[in-house]
Design a protein around this nucleic acid. Sequence first.
DNA 1: GGCCAGGTGTAAA
DNA 2: TTTACACATGGC
Length: 205
Amino acid sequence: MLVSDSRELYERLLTCNLLKNSPKFWWPSYGTFEVVLGVILTQNSQFKRVEISLENLKNNGLNTIDNVLTCKSELLIECIKPSGMYINKSNYILTLCQAIKDDFNDFKNFTCKVDREWLLSQKGIGKESADSILCYACKRNVMVVDAYTNRLLKALGYEFEDYDELQSWFDVDDALMAANFHGMIVEYMKNNSTRKSVKLDKMRF
DNA sequence: GGCCAGGTGTAAA
DNA sequence: TTTACACATGGC
């Protein structure tokens, strides 16, 4: 094992200064409804494409639950096309917005009251998306793990059975640490890895 | 042309 | 329970 625990990994990632271009939070519009849209749009897509879609949505006023629910679905689809899989994703967005309205009334109440189980029962929301919404939209102390995280830990000598086991390896203090931890892992892996290999020298190995 | 990107649902085996 | 495939786009 090249690191003894998640805290050592966190310290090593901090020394890489990976979040220097994101002064406070790595995910854009942290704590807003736009994060929910971004989480669905980013599924099997590049975030650069997601940012184009989010800009389209914003320019058409589709950055609130009510506006998404009352707009023509053709407009929603047109806005999110750059991220791909727009038929599925537009349906996921619409049904999720309706469910939030039905069960929580508004976004603010949703962020305070929603839990993981509720999110996982929604179509189009799996574990990673549920945790991303909790972490980056609801500002909860929830660690998001993904394929990057799994590959990094594997390169460091760890093997995990599944998502939940990988997630439970992480020990985080608060919402800010969780948000930045996952962000640093993604940024590190984007810059220092391919599907087959991970360069560890930036972390002083 | 094939592979991949800040995944998930569904059907078949 | 696991595996294979669909979803769809643009960059390399």
